Each structure stands twice: as structure tokens, then as C-alpha cells.
Computed example of a mutant assay.
Amino acid sequence: MPQRGRRRRQRRKKPNWFLRIMVFMLVGIFVFGAYILYNVLGAFSDTQYELARGDKSDKREQAVNTDDPVSLLIMGIDERPDKQDVGRPDVLMVVTVNPEDKSAKILSIPRDTLTYIPAIGKEDKINHAYSLAEVQQPGTGIESTITTVEELLDIPIDYFAKINFDGFVEIIDTLGGVDVNVERAFKQKAFDGGEEIYFEEGPAHLNGKEALAYVRMRKEWGGDAGRNERQREVLAQLMQKGASFSSLTKIDDIIESLGRNVDMNVSGGELLAFSRKYGSIPKENIESLTLEGTDVMRDRSYFILEEGEAERVGNILKAHLNLPTTSTVNTGAES
């Protein structure tokens, strides 16, 4: 009998230890989650950039929230303080995301695209929307670029992220690199002016420095169209990698890099909400779009869009954003 009593008392202790372990685990998860949230929100206070227009595009009747289809303009800036240059976007990408069907569309805008730049009141290369505005009035380059892209495509740009090349390299390295498929062998000089990097045809795993060279090359073959396709290839992979669980273990490094190298008008809370909502977008639901045009040499090289091309692509993006489309593009149906 005494033995049975002791056994019963031992059995009653087991659930207590189990509950204690569970409590410690839950507390640990909560504390770790709070730590991540605290650091994320703190880091994003360093990245926050308030646009003069406020929190709403002039092409919106009201501001969007994380439940709406939204657009994001990504600017990869060739910014070199050592050369005392204001910098210019080497990468211009518009991303639209729709929560209803968990889909995304990615458009790379060739940097030499000839278009009207409202801030300077004339046509020029689209990447000059940043540099010329900065020279004219420091601190206006981002807003000028956003306005120029909005006018070109006739869509609202709800959010933007401006990242310099150092940030691009650091974030890719932190995420463990990217896997690409090199269409044709080529070489490209490293961004820092160092050695040439050689890319063999076929599958390749690239670190940050190599990935930057990969998305910047355009002279050996493919021109802007080839470069834009490589940019979309890398961005699509980063979207998926950035939302993966393994990225959480590197959150401190990612946060540190963001704080040093990124400006954006997305708050930490909004970014976390977007991550939860769009982190599981299937690869097959990410569509790449292209602007068709021709390289033309005038006083310098320009990319001239085909007639009606900006409106065609703009309509695709409008539909994805659940906005009314226009119907003035000549489809060739009329005789």
C-alpha cells in the first residue's frame, strides 16, 4: 500500500513539470518575439522617410492599409560618398501585391527610359529624376522619382524603399546568398571597382557582391532587357527568402543593415503585417512584366518606349490594384 501511495504522488508531479516546461517555453517565445518586435520597430525608426505629399499618393482618393492591394517602388541607388556624387537609381522596380489572390507583379523600368520628369519640367532619362532633383534641391530626389514613375504608368505609388548597393550586398549575404540560372556566360566588374567577376552558363549560387554584379551587367549581352530580367529573378527569390523562418535567426543582422542602408515610408508595424500577409506567396503567383521599346542614340543613349506601352503595362498594374483601367490604347483592331 505505501508503495502505491508513493507511485501516485510521483505521477501527480509529472504534469507539474510538464506545465512548468510549457510555461517556460511560452514565456521564452513571448520574450523573444517582443525582443524581435522591439528591435524591428527601433531599427525602422532609422529607415523612416516622410514624403512631402503625406501618407497618400495624389492618385488615391484615400490612404491604403495592409488589407488593400498596394504598390511599392524599389530604388537601388548607385550612391558613392567618396566620389561626392548625389547618386542615381541603377535599379527601378515597381512591385504590386494583391491580398485577395496572394499574387505579386514585378516591373523593372529600364534606367535609360525617356520620359517626362515633372520636377525639372522636361524629358530625360528616368533615373535622372533622382539625381537632377537632388542637384536642384537636396532631399527631393526620392519624391521626384516617385512622381515621375506615377506619371509614366498612371498608377499610385503607395510605398517606396531606397536601398544603396552596400545594403543590397549585406542583406543578400545575411540571407545566405541567392540561386540563379545564368543564361549565358559573361563577366562584370565588381561595384567597388575591384576584380572582374566571371559567371559561367547554368545554375549558380551567388553571394552579395556577385549578385550585385549579376543584376547590374547589361553591356556584354541582353542590354537593359536582360538586366531587368535578372533583377526580377533575384528580387523574386529575396521576397521568398526574406519571409522564411530561417531568416528570423538572422534578424539582428538584417535589422542592422536596414538601419544603415535603407530609406522607406513603410513602418515596422506595416512591414510585419505585410510579411504575415504576403510571406506565403507561391513562386508561380509572382509575374514579371516588361516594358517594350528600343535603344536609341541621340545626344546620349535612351530607351524609347513603344507607342502605348506605358499605358498597356499601367493598365495591367491598375487591374492588379483593383483600380479602373483606361481604354485608349490602340490595339490594332481598327482599320
Score class of each variant (00 low, 15 high):
Y198C: 13
S267L: 02
K209R: 10
A225L: 15
K189V: 13
S267D: 13
G259H: 06
P203G: 01
G269D: 13
G268S: 10
T249E: 06
L212Y: 14
R216Y: 03
A213F: 00
K209P: 06
A225V: 15
G223D: 04
N265I: 06
E229V: 13
N261F: 03
S275P: 05
E196M: 03
G193A: 04
G223M: 05
E233R: 01
D253S: 12
I197W: 03
K189N: 11
R230L: 11
T249N: 03
N265Y: 04
G269R: 12
G193W: 08
D224T: 12
G269V: 15
F245L: 15
D263R: 04
R232I: 09
Q231C: 03
N207Q: 06
I255W: 12
M264R: 05
D253G: 07
G268F: 11
Y214C: 04
N228S: 14
S257A: 10
E195T: 12
L272W: 01
Y198G: 02
G222S: 08
S244D: 12
R227P: 09
P203D: 01
S244A: 13
E195L: 07
R216Q: 07
S244L: 07
I255Y: 00
Q231H: 05
K209I: 03
M217I: 10
P203A: 12
M217W: 11
E200R: 14
D224H: 09
S257C: 09
R232Q: 14
A213G: 11
G259K: 00
K250L: 11
N228G: 15
V266G: 05
K209A: 08
M239V: 15
R230W: 14
D192H: 03
W221E: 13
A213H: 09
H205F: 10
D192S: 08
K209W: 01
E201Y: 13
I255H: 05
E210M: 03
A204R: 09
I197E: 04
N228H: 13
K250H: 13
L235D: 12
L258I: 10
E210Q: 13
K189F: 05
I255T: 07
G222N: 04
P203E: 00
D252L: 13
K219W: 12
R218V: 06
A236N: 10
D263P: 13
G202K: 02
L212H: 08
K241N: 15
E220I: 05
F199G: 00
E210H: 04
S275N: 00
L271I: 04
E270Q: 05
E256Y: 05
E196A: 02
Y214L: 00
A236Q: 08
K241G: 14
S244P: 04
W221S: 01
L238N: 12
I254C: 09
